[in-house]
Nucleic acid binder design. Structure first.
Lengths: 158, 158
DNA sequence: CACAATTCAATTGCACACAACTAAATGGCG
DNA sequence: CGCCATTTAGTTGTGTGCAATTGAATTGTG
């Protein structure tokens, strides 16, 4: 029991949260550089990726793919619309819903985006298998953290 | 060479950046819950960790530890000061520099923070060794990304 | 059909990140 | 000493991220 004094936990904690934070921001930094040509921010690029892969989607579905709510997506989508990459149209069937549709320009941008992943992959210095393993580990982490957050939120014990 | 069609790169890329993003935000979510008691946000907690470990520091040094610039730190430190956890004092030796000093209250908060890391570690579902390995991998990633960002920034080839 | 609960997007308020800029202070150099 | 490049914080502007609220539309129930 003397192997891990309580005070040392603070340092361990510091290091794991630092590492994740740093990696996340370092990733953002590389994307920022690479995406500059496309006129996209990193979150905007994520939105475009989802649209390119899944086609037109309501804001809600988009948010589920990206784990983002309307508070983040609404202004972001307005910027994409202002940039001429998407249109937002109220659904005829359900007027609460807003369909996000790629414009011609938005669809065309995909061609130029095809070069992005290779540049990012190169920047990581990881090969495909290493990336795959890291991704698995991170997904596992996310799942555990989400489950824990739900349990912590109400009242800890109940 | 036909193993990885270009279009598939978009999906691979999507998954690694999604995973890191998701893990980072899930982490933030758990910290948000756990730190609520202490009245700290996640970035504020990181600042306090550095101060607890290294003692009083100028803003510059703080930023080096956290990879943050004054644009982020200045308002954050003002909030910590407003909360009574730190004082900001112009250095006598170098008046450009601002020393960030823990108050009694800020020092005392450390005792209550000691329980945080264990709650976080528990939430991850990882043991110490797994955390250590993940951290090593993330640090390796960060280092590679930072190096790549520097090379990408100027003009790609120069 | 009326009405309450739910769903969905948008808005508001707050707190990071980061680029670009400003302004004060320092240090080196002739 | 006077001048200039550098260092250091702070400020401004843009863009997320998220909690909380609002308001319109839909659904379930009687």
């Amino acid at each position: 029991m003397t192997t891990t004094p309580t005070a040392d936990w603070l340092r361990l904690d510091q290091q794991i949260c630092f590492s994740l934070n740093a990696a996340s921001r370092a990733f953002g930094g590389v994307y920022r550089v690479v995406l500059k040509d496309l006129g996209l921010t990193y979150p905007q690029y994520l939105v475009m990726l989802v649209l390119w892969e899944h086609g037109d989607l309501p804001v809600k579905k988009l948010g589920e793919h990206l784990r983002l709510d309307s508070g983040t997506l609404s202004p972001l989508l307005k910027r994409l619309e202002a940039a001429g990459l998407v249109r937002r149209e109220r659904s005829a069937r359900d007027e609460r819903s807003v369909e996000v549709r790629l414009t011609e320009e938005g669809t065309a941008l995909r061609e130029r985006a095809l070069q992005v992943p290779r540049r990012i992959a190169t920047a990581t210095g990881f090969d495909v298998d290493e990336i795959r393993e890291l991704r698995a580990r991170l997904d596992q982490l996310t799942e555990a953290l989400d489950a824990a957050a739900v349990e912590e939120t109400p009242g800890q014990g109940a």
